[in-house]
Amino acid sequence: MNLEEGEILALKEYREEKSYLVRKITSVANRLNRIERNIKNEFPLPNENLEKLTEFFPNIKVKKIEDINKFHINISQILDKQLENSLNVLKDEKRILETRLSDLDRKIDDFLYSFEEDNELLNNLNSLYQKKYILETENESYERNEAIKRDISKKKDEIDKIKGQTVSELNQIINKSIKKVNQFIYQSTKKAPQLKLDINNYEYINNENTGTGAAYKNLILFDLAVFETSELPFIIHDSFLFKNIEIPAIERIIEFYSSSVKQIFIAIDEAQKYKEEVKNIIQQNAIVLLDESKTLFVKDWSK
C-alpha cells in the first residue's frame, strides 16, 4: 500500500493535536493543584493562638483582633466558594480534555494499524516531512532576521541623521552665544573663538592667541555661552581662571556676571585693583570676605 503525502500530513496533525492536549491537561492539572492547596490553607488566627498572644501582651485589644479575625473568616468563606467554583470548572475542563485525548489516541492507533505493513515507510516519510517542516521554519526565521537587520540598519541611519542635525543646531546656538558674550566683553576688539562639534568629536578654536590667558578666557566664554542657552541653574568660577586675563576683560566679565538672572559663584583675589564700579559689584554681592586676619581655615596655609 502506498502512502500519500496527505496521509502523512494527517498523522502529523494527529500528533500535534495530541502534544497540544497533553500540554493543556498538564496546565489544567497544575491550576487544580494550586487551588486545592489554597482551599486547604487557613488564614484566620485560631483562638488558642489568640489566648497565647494575651499572655505576652496583657494590654492588647483582643476585641479588635477578634473583629479582624471574623472579617478574615468571612472573606475566606467567600474565597472558598469562588475557589470551589473554579475547581469544579477546571475538573470539567480536565475531563473533557482527557476524553479528547483518549479519542485521539484511538484514532492514531487505528490509523497506524491500517498501515501496519508500511509502518517503516510511514515513519521514514514522517521523518522526511518533519525535516522539511524544520527547514521551511528555519528559512522563514532567516528571512525574518534579515528583515529585522535591514530595519535596524535603516533606523540607525535615521538616528544618525537626527543626531547630526541636532549637533549642528547645538553648534550654531553655542557659537552664536559665544559671539554675544565675546562682544559684551571685548566690544569687537577681539575675535570670538569657534566651537566645531560633530557626532564623535569637537574642536574649540581660537586662531588669534593660544596663550594661557586666552585659554582661560575662552573657557569662561564657553561656560557663559552654555549657561545662557541652557537650563543649567548655576556655574562656579575659581580665582585661578582670572590670573592671566587682562584687567579690563575681567571687569567686563564681572559686569556680565552681574547682569545674569541666574546664580554665579566666583572666588576672586585682589578686588581692589579693579575700577570702582566693579569693586562695588563685588562688595554688594560678596558672601565671604577673606584677608590675612580673616582666613578660611584656622591655620594660614600660605605661611
Rank of each mutant, 00 (worst) to 15 (best):
S141R: 12
A267R: 02
T99N: 15
Y204H: 03
Q284E: 15
F57G: 11
N123H: 07
D238E: 05
D300G: 05
L11G: 04
E228T: 07
I235P: 03
K299T: 10
L170M: 11
A147F: 06
N41D: 13
L45R: 01
V278S: 00
E36H: 06
N126P: 09
I266T: 03
L3E: 04
K156Y: 09
E17G: 09
K217F: 14
K279E: 10
N285R: 10
N182E: 02
Q82D: 14
L232Y: 02
P58E: 00
K294Y: 10
Y257H: 07
I159D: 12
E55A: 14
N175W: 00
K279P: 06
I35G: 07
I8W: 04
Y186S: 09
L128F: 12
I96S: 14
Q82L: 13
D151N: 12
K176Q: 15
N200W: 05
K63G: 13
F71D: 06
E270I: 02
K243S: 13
K154D: 13
Y186W: 10
T229W: 01
V28M: 02
I68T: 09
I8S: 02
I96A: 14
L122D: 00
Q183C: 01
I254Y: 06
I220S: 07
F115Y: 04
I134M: 00
L128R: 12
E292R: 11
Q263Y: 01
I287A: 12
N145Q: 15
L289Y: 14
I35C: 00
V288N: 08
P58Q: 04
